[in-house]
């Protein structure tokens, strides 16, 4: 499958990575090259094969319902590139969102 410029623009937007108009064409051919190479998988008959998401074969472990975390507001917001740590509490901030 080869991808075109519009597809690159669409997935770049889904991934929220800004891609300049001039980069779309080279990216499209680069990604097409990789996808074409990947498609050799179609040679494999997998009709009767269930997918495998994890190699781990132990059961999922459950945690007890105990409060043993949180209460670390300062650590949580310490690395925030922009924020409001006024006396109303410590918030992260983003450009205003209109819902």
């Amino acid at each position: 499958m080869s991808v075109d410029k519009a597809t690159v623009a669409r997935i770049a937007h889904l991934a929220r990575i800004g891609v300049g108009e001039d980069e779309l064409e080279p990216l499209a051919s680069e990604l097409s090259g990789i996808l074409n190479w990947i498609e050799q998988l179609n040679e494999v008959d997998t009709d009767a094969v269930p997918p495998m998401a994890s190699v781990h074969d132990e059961a999922l472990r459950w945690r007890a319902d105990v409060i043993n975390d949180g209460g670390k507001q300062a650590d949580v917001v310490a690395n925030a590139p922009d924020g409001d740590q006024n006396n109303d509490g410590a918030f992260f901030t983003v450009p205003k969102v209109i819902e």
Binding site: D69, G70, K72, Q73, V76
Partner: peptide
């Protein structure tokens, strides 16, 4: 995570990493 679920706490005070 082990952070609390109670309503009405101070902003980001019931947050684990």
């Amino acid at each position: 995570s082990g952070a609390a679920t109670a309503f009405g706490a101070e902003a980001n005070s019931q947050v684990s990493l």
